[in-house]
Amino acid sequence: MTTTPGDGLEVRLDDAALVIDTLGRRCPIPVIELAKQIGSVPVGAVVAVLSDDEAARVDIPAWCQMRAQAYVGETDAPAGRAYLVRRST
């Protein structure tokens, strides 16, 4: 995975229809919260998961692959990192 923070992403944190704050919470909580809440945005919208757990960097893209959602990439956030996912289904 060679995603450069914030660079070259088609969307930014400001574009997210929903921001899920999981700062301070350990895996698999960030992925669980993403799974619980992604249904609340329309198909095509972007959800951002804020996390300071290193595992999220691997687990969120892996979840997207298992659930046929589109992983956009990671970017800077005021705290931790923001992982962006576009709802595809």
Partner: peptide, 24 residues
């Protein structure tokens, strides 16, 4: 290989390098 609650709080470096789920 998952160590979510262990003292290191780091995911398995093997699973992370493979890009597969690191929990469960």
């Amino acid at each position: 290989g998952s160590s979510c609650t262990s003292s290191t709080l780091r995911p398995s470096h093997v699973l992370a390098a493979m890009g597969v789920l690191t929990h469960g």
